[in-house]
Design a protein around this nucleic acid. Structure first.
Lengths: 319, 319
DNA sequence: CTGAAAGCGCTTACAG
DNA sequence: CTGAAAGCGCTTACAG
């Protein structure tokens, strides 16, 4: 490549690295660009990585890629990474991976930073010293976090149901011991407590349709049946629909149901689900932007992305 | 590291690379392993890549990661890759990516091979000479392909509906000009033609619930209404349910509906969907195994993975 | 059985 | 403004 352009290797490196102005004549720079174009030349990333001691690759850790939510997070993160010339490697953990350690161990030296979504903080213990941005996680930690304003979302749901006259509300709560679900639970409790005569019951479930159906069923079979079921996410709401149907209850005629996330499922259900839209792709994008800033030596602040209540057909006036 | 073990760099490399038997004494090898363990030493992948001219990284190209189907493909591929010490980089294309070329261009030199799922073959033109295995693609090409036996799946659906007495069948067909959908269409047509008195109508739609609802609606509004709707995938079936409900038709009392894929959505719907289970994770795993074989100098044969008809609540005897 | 040496292709002081 | 040289950390002939 250097001889094709009739210059030295150093000059090629300077020009292609964009560091030439003031050090290489414009004419020479143009010649280098021309030759590179003509030959389809691209710098060898392995050599560059070795020399620089950096890989321009970031790891995204998510609980699973099978939930479409995390596919969106990946899309947003990948878009921002690509724009800055960074690669993105995803590791679903622990759900889909085989032996959890092997990919980790292999990549410890191969990445510059970590974007970890919805993960217990302990998972990062294996990567001491690696810059990290946490997504959808407890902001009390030392790392920069990017979160959704889920408490606001839950309050919006409580207010929406309250305005429709609901007072006896059931919470179909996700079991995982994650920060986001703890916040959702607390915000809902506060929102219902603020309703005159508000009363909250709760059933805990794993994030699984069949399990959610059982949990919702327990709530619906109580002596004083709730008139609305607030579910911690859209998938749980699908289970709530099933529990309602199994008992001959019409949604939203006899029972209002809400979700959270607004994934594809929300509009696949009948009736379509009233839920809070959480901008998953934006989460990935802002998280990657923060990580890139961190890698560049900055101190990006933690931040929180607002959700938006989307009212569809699953909520109606209390009977 | 070398001095910590009291040996030369070459010896470390030989031992850690597993090439020591017969060349290094067992005692020395043990000492090297000990020191590596103690220091938490891991070879620098960039140096290795530079020296070897290989990256032990494979690119997975999928249309999108937001469809859970491709999340499963990724999981299977990543599992096999990790087991062989390979990394996996995913590029959703063209759906989620920003500027399509930028990540491609950047990674051309950074990967050893490509696993491309459900993509037009032209996309690979930008990677001349890179070993490729195609997933869910026309096996007529030169590359090794790993596919689902979708024709068998469609025939199983046609036979199932035929046995239930259905004769007027509507096909909610996916529009994308993909090999898999062409095969599905042809197999269904043959299966219905084999039914005495069988008659097939068809409406084409993009892979989108609202569009599928419209397409299914056109079929249902025909003079002689079909008694069963065969959908090219589960998401289209969700649209078919909506079209049925909008017309006061009960599924499966008035109308049977089938899907294909068996993703999460299939059991979220009410009634749960009769569909053909396509082993997406297995597709990714077998595709990666084939690619690894190809990279190792082998000539892996193309293959086809069987699906399985899963009968749930959305099909019943024809009225 | 073990080590010294070359070289993979970059980037970055440094000399001119 | 331009080029020669060093060195990043490996792997692999090669010599002993």
């Amino acid at each position: 490549m250097a001889q094709a352009a009739g210059v030295s290797q150093s000059t090629v490196s300077l020009v292609l690295g964009g560091k030439w102005p003031g050090r290489v004549s414009p004419a020479t720079a143009a010649a280098v660009h021309d030759a590179a174009e003509r030959l389809g030349y691209r710098p060898n990333p392995a050599a560059r990585n070795l020399r620089m001691g950096t890989t321009r690759t970031v790891m995204l850790m998510v609980p699973t890629l099978i939930a479409p939510f995390f596919g969106s997070v990946h899309a947003g993160a990948a878009r921002v990474a690509a724009r800055h010339g960074f690669g993105l490697v995803v590791y679903p953990w622990p759900d889909d991976a085989g032996p959890a350690d092997s990919p980790f161990a292999a990549s410890r030296e191969a990445i510059d930073g970590i974007l970890a979504s919805s993960m217990p903080r302990e998972v990062l213990a294996g990567f001491p010293g690696t810059p990290v941005v946490m997504l959808d996680s407890d902001p009390a930690g030392a790392e920069t976090t990017v979160n959704f304003a889920v408490a606001d979302g839950m309050r919006a749901i409580a207010a929406h149901l309250g305005a429709l006259g609901h007072r006896r509300i059931g919470h179909v709560a996700a079991e995982p011991d994650q920060w986001t679900f703890q916040v959702r639970g607390a915000a809902l409790a506060a929102g219902v407590a603020a309703l005159p005569g508000g009363a909250l019951t709760r059933a805990v479930t794993s994030i699984d349709i069949a399990a959610a159906k059982d949990a919702a069923g327990r709530l619906l079979d109580a002596h004083e049946r709730p008139t609305a079921l607030v579910c911690d996410d859209d998938m749980l709401a699908a289970g709530a629909y099933k529990a309602a149907r199994a008992r001959g209850l019409d949604v939203p005629g006899d029972l209002s149901v809400t979700g959270m996330d607004d994934v594809l499922l929300a509009t696949a259900l009948e009736p379509e689900l009233t839920t809070v839209r959480l901008p998953a792709e934006e989460l990935g994008a802002q998280g990657m932007a923060a990580l890139l800033e961190l890698l560049g030596g900055g101190r990006p602040p933690s931040r929180s992305l607002p959700g938006r209540l989307v009212v569809r057909g699953s909520t109606a006036a209390a009977v």
